[in-house]
Write a protein that binds this DNA or RNA. Structure first.
Length: 522
RNA sequence: GCCAGUGUAGUUCAAUGGUUAGAACGAGGGAAUCAUAACCCCUAGACAGAGGUUCAAUUCCUCUCACUGGCACCA
C-alpha cells in the first residue's frame, strides 16, 4: 500500500482578493505534492479560506454587504487563482462551512474542555471604539490608536482561555527531538527560543455580542470561538474529524507538512501543537515556513501602487512562468522580491533563451536531418560522443573524486544530476532543485557546441544521430525533473518528443513535432 | 533595550582555516549559424569596517556600523 502524504497550505484570509504571497504558498505546496506523488505516495493536498473574525466583518461593512454575502463573493476569486495556477489540491475547506467545518471545530473545543484545559478568565484589553474591537500595544502611536487617533479604553470582559502553558515542555521536546520538524533551521531555533522564554495561556473566545460572525462555543452560545480553534482546526475538519465520516482523518492525520508564512509560525509552532496535545491527537510531522514577497523592496500596498496581481501575471505571461518565478527566483524559505521588470528579465533569460530555445534547436535539427524520427543508437555509438571534460559535470565534487575521463549524458543525469536533485527535494529546497535543472540545460547547450551536429551531419550522420539522441534524452530528462514545478511545460515537452510521460521504461525512440516555441520572448 | 541571525561582484546567490573566492542575470568583446540575434567562448567586477588568535582568515574570536527576524492574541 502506498505511503500517505498529507500536505496543507495555511487558509487564506478573505478580507481582500488573493495576493501573490498566497499564490507562492500554493505553488510551493503544489510542487511538493506533485513530487510526493511522483515518488509513489498517496497525497492529500488541502487548501482553503479563513472567513471569520472582526476584520472580515469590517471589510464586509465597508463593501456594504452582509458577512456571508461578502465571503461568498470573495471565495471564487481564490478558487480561480488555484485553477489558473494548475494547483492539484484534493480539497478546499471554508471555515464558514457550517456543515463541514463547524462540527469538527466544536468537537475539538469539547475535547480541550474535557481535558480540563478551557477555563474562564477576565480578559483585559485596550478597546478602540473606532475599531469596535480590542487592539494591541503595537497598534498604538503615542498611546493612541494609529488608525483612529483615539485613546483606547481599558475594558475587562470574561472570556475562555486555553491552558497552553501546560504543554510547553512537551511541544519544546517534540521540536528539539525532531519529532515535529520545522524548516528551515532558523525558524526552528526561533520558535524554540520563544518556547524557552515561557508560554502563557491564550484567550480562546470573544463575547458573541462583539463578534457574531464565527463559530459558537459549544457549551456557551454567548461566546464565539476566537481564531485559534476556529481556523487552525481546518486541518482536521477537512478530513472529517468530528463528522459522520472520520475515515479520511484516521487515514491521513497527522499532517506530513503544513506550509505557512513566517507571520503565523507561532500559531503553528506553539498554539496548534498545544491544542492537539490537549485533544490527544498526533502532532504534525513538519512545518515549512516561507518568507514574504515584496515588490521593489517594499511591502505591497495600494497606496504605493506596487501590488502584483497574480491573476494578471498569469493572464499575460502564462501559469508556468509565474510558477517558475515564485519557485526559483524567490528563495524558498527567505523573503523575495517581485517586480515585473525582473520577471520579464528572468522570463527571457531562463525560459525563452534557456529552456524554450534549447527545445527549439534540438527539435529543429531532428526534424530537418532525420525527418523527426530517432531510434536509440547502440551503446558503442553513444560512447563515441561523451560530454566534454571542461563541463560542469567535471567540476562537481563527486566527479572530481572519480577516475572517470569521460562520461555519457545518461550517466551524468542518473548518477550526478538526479541524486543532487532528490537530495534538495527531500529537504524541501525547491530553488536548489530547480538550480540543478538549469545546470543540466547549460550542460546540454554546451554539448551542442562541442559536437556541432549541424556541421557534423554533413560528414557523419550516424554520429550525428547519437548526438541528437543525447540531446533529446536530455530534453526528456529535464521534462521529468520539471514535472513538480512546471507541469504544463513538462507535459508539452513529452508530447513534442512523442513519448508517454507515465511510462517508466527507458526511452527507445522519439518522434518530434514542435508546433510553436515554448516561451516567446517578451 | 534584550535575544537570534545576516552583511561576498551593479543585482540574486554559493563556497572555503592555506595555490588565481565560484555561478547566474545584467554590461563589454569574440566566434558561430541548429535555434526564439538565442547558444558557446572570453573580459571587467566582490569578501561592511577595525582589532585579535594563527605560520596562514573571507572563513574562528571581539568590537563598531548596517540590515532582518523574534520579544505573544496580528490570519
Amino acid at each position: 500500500m502506498a505511503e500517505k502524504f498529507y500536505i496543507t497550505t495555511a487558509i487564506a484570509y478573505v478580507n481582500a482578493p488573493p495576493h501573490i504571497g498566497y499564490a507562492m504558498e500554493l505553488v510551493q505546496a503544489d510542487a511538493i505534492a506533485r513530487w510526493q506523488k511522483l515518488c509513489g505516495r498517496e497525497v492529500y493536498f488541502l487548501t482553503g479560506t479563513d472567513e471569520h473574525g472582526a476584520k472580515i466583518m469590517r471589510a464586509a461593512q465597508a463593501a456594504g454587504k452582509e458577512a456571508r454575502a461578502f465571503v461568498d463573493g470573495m471565495v471564487p476569486e481564490f478558487k480561480r487563482l488555484i485553477s489558473l495556477l494548475d494547483i492539484l489540491n484534493n480539497d478546499f475547506i471554508r471555515t464558514s462551512d457550517e456543515r463541514r467545518h463547524f462540527p469538527g471545530a466544536q468537537d475539538l473545543w469539547r475535547r480541550l474542555e474535557r481535558a480540563g484545559d478551557i477555563y474562564k478568565k477576565k480578559y483585559s484589553g485596550l478597546y478602540c471604539v473606532g475599531h469596535e474591537a480590542f487592539i494591541t500595544q503595537k497598534d498604538l502611536v503615542d498611546g493612541k490608536c494609529s488608525d483612529h487617533g483615539q485613546t483606547p479604553e481599558s475594558i475587562e470582559e470574561e472570556n475562555y482561555f486555553f491552558r497552553l502553558s501546560k504543554y510547553r515542555d512537551q511541544i519544546l521536546q517534540a521540536i528539539e527531538s525532531g519529532e515535529f520538524m520545522i524548516f528551515p533551521e532558523s525558524r526552528k531555533n526561533e520558535i524554540a527560543s520563544f518556547l524557552k522564554e515561557g508560554l502563557e495561556d491564550v484567550s480562546f473566545s470573544r463575547p458573541a455580542k462583539d463578534i457574531s460572525w464565527g463559530i459558537a462555543v459549544p457549551s456557551d452560545v454567548s461566546q464565539t470561538m476566537y481564531v485559534w480553534c476556529d481556523a487552525l482546526s481546518n486541518y482536521i475538519t477537512a478530513l472529517g474529524f468530528g463528522s459522520g465520516n472520520p475515515a479520511p482523518f484516521e487515514k491521513f492525520w497527522p499532517a506530513d507538512l503544513h506550509i505557512i508564512g513566517k507571520d503565523i509560525l507561532r500559531f503553528h509552532g506553539a498554539i496548534w501543537p498545544g491544542m492537539l496535545l490537549s485533544a490527544g491527537l498526533s502532532l504534525p510531522k513538519a512545518l515549512f515556513v516561507h518568507g514574504f514577497v515584496t515588490s521593489g523592496g517594499q511591502k505591497m500596498s495600494k497606496t504605493l501602487g506596487n501590488v502584483i496581481d497574480p491573476l494578471d501575471i498569469v493572464d499575460r505571461y502564462g501559469k508556468d512562468p509565474l510558477r517558475y518565478y515564485l519557485l526559483r527566483e524567490i528563495s524558498t524559505f527567505g523573503d523575495g522580491d517581485f517586480t515585473e521588470d525582473r520577471f520579464v528579465e528572468v522570463y527571457n533569460a531562463h525560459l525563452s533563451n534557456g529552456l524554450g530555445n534549447y527545445i527549439s534547436r534540438v527539435t529543429a535539427m531532428i526534424e530537418e536531418y532525420f525527418s523527426g524520427r530517432l531510434e536509440k543508437p547502440s551503446v558503442e555509438v553513444l560512447s563515441s560522443v561523451p560530454i566534454r571534460k571542461s563541463s560542469t559535470f567535471f567540476t562537481l565534487k563527486e566527479a572530481k573524486s572519480s577516475e572517470l575521463e569521460t562520461v555519457s549524458i545518461s550517466y551524468f543525469i542518473d548518477r550526478f544530476v538526479r541524486p543532487r536533485y532528490e537530495e534538495a527535494m527531500q529537504r524541501y529546497e525547491l530553488k536548489q532543485a530547480m538550480d540543478v535543472i538549469w545546470e543540466v540545460l547549460r550542460e546540454l547547450d554546451a554539448y551542442v557546441q562541442t559536437y556541432e551536429p549541424f556541421r557534423l551531419v554533413k560528414t557523419d550522420p550516424e554520429k550525428t544521430k547519437a548526438v541528437l539522441w543525447n540531446l533529446a534524452y536530455g530534453a526528456l530528462s529535464v521534462a521529468r525533473l520539471l514535472q513538480p514545478f512546471m507541469p504544463g511545460t513538462a507535459d508539452k515537452i513529452f508530447s513534442i518528443f512523442g513519448v508517454d510521460k507515465k511510462s517508466k521504461d527507458e526511452w527507445r525512440g522519439v518522434t518530434v513535432k514542435l508546433d510553436a516555441p515554448l516561451f516567446l520572448r517578451k
